[in-house]
Amino acid sequence: MQSNTQQQIPNSKFLIPYCLHLADTTLILSHRNSEWCGHGPILEQDIALTNIALDLLGQARNFYQYAAMLMGVEFDEDKLAYLREPNEFKNHLIAEHPNSDWAVTILRQFYFSCYQYYFYSELKNSNDEQLAAIATKALKEVTYHLRWSTEWVVRLGDGTEESNTKMQNAVEFLKDYVIEFFVMSDYETELLKDAVSIDVKAIQGKWQQKVNDVFEEATLNFVPSPNSRFGGKDGEHSEHLVSLLEEMQSLQRTYPNSVW
């Protein structure tokens, strides 16, 4: 363990932001999904989406705990989740986007689960044992998220005229937020040298193929984006994240160190 820790010191400069990126993305999407709690179209879907939110929260905790361990004794998972400023968050912009309607929520979950599926499939072979272990565990959850969200994309896309229109609008609505999945940040590029991170560019083809297959079944048309939005992974966010964090962090900031 001692020698292991020493080995990690050279790249902890990049490993910490990488862990925070992975944690933030799953935490923020978890929070967005949790906003549906009590508002789902039917009870069963309310529970399904809340389950997914809890799975993502569990993944976030694993990454925060690992980041806190690398950062030192004065940090813990709660501090990292509840006491950081918006410009310190490294989540994908798609995660912080407001839920809008059920179609957008479903399509975002499908895009994200599809990305996570191929991402974790690679990350489980990471040279970093901790990341590999988290990925292996999370992949089982994500496999179900992908199945569930695929089912809904097809059901709504190939459903009624109204549901198809809403889904196609969702495709349009989210089109600028897709490419960010596949753009390497500096810390990912550095960690890739030691095969700690994964090459997200390399999973874009698989992602697109899966989306195309599902869209064909769902009678939807994928829309490429001429001006994609980037920057989330380096802390550049929309005002949506500011208001999300204001709500999510309010309890911990009002009553510091409160616990369940």
């Binding site: 039917i42 009870l43 069963e44 529970i47 399904a48 389950n51 089912e151 059901r155």
Partner: peptide, 20 residues
Amino acid sequence: SLHAADVAMAMENARDVYTR
């Protein structure tokens, strides 16, 4: 029991509601 549009949705709803 639960509500679902077809057997695939019923199976997933059952998983989500009754095997948590």
